[in-house]
């Protein structure tokens, strides 16, 4: 028996918004410690890694490890039926071929349940090595989304260049060039407004706008985003999900000019 009850059901709705453009389907690996999802987009250029710890749920039971293959467009349709203040429970029997979503309104006057068929997915799991990154940049997530959106008008790629002075985002194309420089913030009233750069060595890498923009669909999950870069390895874009866990996106850098 698997059962996970999330009082802040809106978080699950936001997680769905954050992954559904990138992935058509994904396996939710449910274990005693919580729920994990790892899946690459169709072109294998980017990867989503979602971690929801059991401690984040107000009720969590997982008697046996369970892999639930879900069609994300179907799951998204179902989660759209939940109100933002609904409590959401996911449950499944061992070896079941369906999962049930139960939505409870805060005062319990409306309770809905939706059963969805599971699909068998033969997904490749990748081993992601522990990496000490040369540059770790923290910035407001809305600022990052704005930069990706603005620079996408200029070209297909964004160059992210991190030095001890700060971080520079650049794009170039037919209409011209664009550069956005962010300096580390000295003092801020709110920690979530800070720009922080932890640099061991300067790094400059180029990434496809299309994917960066899809990652920024996670913006509502967290006020801050963390970008980790090292020369010639995939970028990590991480959004914390309150006290529950995180969503990380990996993106292979573009090579060449």
């Amino acid at each position: 028996m698997f059962e996970a009850r999330l009082v802040q059901g809106a978080l699950l709705k936001k997680v769905m918004e954050a992954i559904k453009e990138l992935l058509n389907e994904a396996s939710f690996d449910c274990a005693h410690s919580g729920i994990l999802l790892q899946a690459m987009d169709n072109s294998h250029v980017s990867l989503v890694s979602l971690n929801l710890r059991r401690e984040g749920f107000d009720k969590y039971r997982c008697d046996r490890n369970l892999v639930m293959g879900m069609n994300l467009s179907s799951m998204s349709k179902i989660l759209k039926c939940a109100s933002n203040d609904d409590i959401i429970t996911m449950k499944a029997q061992d070896n079941a071929d369906t999962v049930t979503f139960v939505f409870e309104s805060p005062k319990q006057e409306k309770i809905s349940d939706y059963e969805m068929k599971l699909t068998n997915l033969d997904q490749d799991h990748l081993g992601i090595p522990e990496t000490e990154y040369s540059c770790v940049i923290k910035l407001p997530s809305a600022e990052f989304a704005r930069i990706c959106r603005d620079l996408s008008q200029f070209g297909e790629s964004i160059v992210i260049s991190c030095t001890k002075e700060g971080v520079k985002f650049s794009a170039a194309g037919d209409i011209g060039t664009a550069n956005i420089k962010l300096a580390q913030t000295a003092t801020v009233d709110k920690e979530e407004d800070a720009v922080m750069v932890d640099m061991q060595e300067p790094v400059t890498l180029t990434f496809a706008c299309k994917y960066l923009n899809m990652f920024t669909k996670a913006t509502p999950l967290s006020p801050q985003v963390c970008l980790s870069m090292s020369p010639d390895v995939p970028l990590v874009v991480e959004y914390k999900i309150e006290d529950i866990g995180h969503i990380r996106y990996y993106l292979a850098p573009r090579i060449g000019d």
Partner: peptide, 14 residues
Amino acid sequence: ASTQPTLNDYFKSK
């Protein structure tokens, strides 16, 4: 022109 490698070039299948 730039090329776009896949993640399989960096991470190995488990």
